[in-house]
């Protein structure tokens, strides 16, 4: 994974607004396509990919801009999910039953706090050690929820979780839930793109590229990194709440090591260089998971994903985004060559 090239550190000044035609096309497609497909494509593919994309986006932000590869992002999402179940209503009759307008902000806050603590513990480390310590945190949380019955209901977890009927709409229904996911994903995506060129974002990228230099310019490197964990935590928490509504349930399996690794796989397959990568990776992952599994069984599926992961890391460290760049550069060169040739 190359996450340290400074070249994508963007100019802090100009919001480069001119939206390209293909970007409008993608947006239109995202809005229109669920109207024309069966529920499976709205929920199991569309909404699910958007949600995983949001959680992966939190890692893209941390790793791509901050140079910190955290494996605890799914765990942060899980904390938010568990919080929603515990503070709100669930079928185990263990929930506190608080109203959604308390439950949701509170869950986001708890998960963001958890992410901040994770950051506080991890920012002393770098590289492989960050991966190890965040993995340790993820595993610890998995065992905690599995063994604790008083708060987390142990092995069973919680079921009967659904989005609240705000505005008299059934948000659990495929179309509304798709658009809810799209809305949250869109906001998170736009926020990360905007933030990447904010003072905080540029400082973070400076820290990624040369922390010692940044400290010698007056930046508190640790504090910036922890702040990045907190911001990424909020994004992961939003994804986590959507995920728990999508599944209708949460259990230790939802925050197990394989789920934790999935997020890394998604972010890396898509490419850490730009927020788009998270969603690109998510859609590929979800399609593979839905269709490859019909052809082969779960164990072999993991092998396929693992090999795909290795291939991507090996051939295109920038993930699918990198492949896309290579392809478009090649076609430009080709077009240029053709023009030259014609011109002569």
């Amino acid at each position: 994974m190359t996450i340290s090239s400074a070249s994508d550190l963007e100019q802090p000044r100009l919001p480069s607004l001119p939206v390209k035609p293909w970007q409008i096309l993608v947006l239109l497609l995202l809005i229109v396509y669920p109207l024309m497909v069966p529920d499976f494509w709205r929920l199991q593919v569309g909404a699910y990919a958007l949600i995983l994309g949001v959680i992966a986006l939190s890692l893209t932000f941390l790793a791509g801009y901050g140079g910190m590869v955290s494996l605890a992002q799914m765990t942060v999402a899980g904390v938010a999910g568990y919080a929603v179940a515990i503070f709100g209503v669930n079928s185990a009759a263990l929930g506190l039953g608080w109203p959604w307008w308390v439950t949701i902000p509170l869950s986001l806050a708890v998960a963001t706090l958890f992410a901040t603590l994770t950051g506080w513990l991890s920012v002393r480390t770098a590289g492989i050690y960050t991966i190890m310590i965040t993995l340790a945190i993820a595993v610890a949380f998995f065992y905690l929820v599995r063994q604790n019955y008083v708060i987390f209901n142990g092995f069973t977890g919680f079921a009967g979780l659904a989005p609240p009927p705000v505005f008299g709409l059934d948000w659990r229904a495929p179309l509304p839930f798709y658009y809810l996911s799209l809305g949250v994903a869109g906001i998170c995506f736009a926020a990360v793109v905007y933030m990447s060129r904010s003072t905080m974002g540029v400082a973070l990228q400076g820290i990624r590229d040369n922390p010692r230099r940044m400290a010698a310019l007056g930046f508190n490197v640790r504090a910036h990194r922890i702040a990045a964990y907190a911001l990424a935590g909020l994004i992961a928490a939003l994804g986590g709440i959507l995920l728990v509504w999508f599944n209708g349930r949460i259990s230790p399996g939802s925050v197990g090591v394989d789920r934790v690794i999935d997020i890394l796989v998604i972010a890396v397959i898509g490419g850490l260089r730009h927020p788009t990568g998270a969603f690109l990776g998510a859609i590929v992952f979800v399609l593979l998971e839905n269709f490859a599994i019909d052809l082969i069984d779960r164990e072999r599926f993991n092998t396929v994903i693992g090999i795909a992961f290795l291939a991507i890391v090996f051939f295109s460290p920038d993930g699918l985004l990198g492949l896309w760049d290579k392809a478009s550069r090649a076609s430009r060169t080709l077009a240029g060559a053709t023009k030259d040739w014609n011109g002569r």
């Binding site: 070249s7 994508d8 000044r13 003072t199 400076g206 230099r213 310019l217 911001l231």
Partner: peptide, 28 residues
């Protein structure tokens, strides 16, 4: 120890930002 991928302006901007408030600003 410069930020080689950045412009001169951005390098100086980081230096200026390092010693002023608003280092954590989420706004551009």
């Amino acid at each position: 120890m410069l930020f080689r991928g950045l412009s001169v302006r951005d390098n100086l901007y980081l230096a200026a930002q390092g010693i002023t408030r608003g280092r954590y600003s989420l706004r551009r």
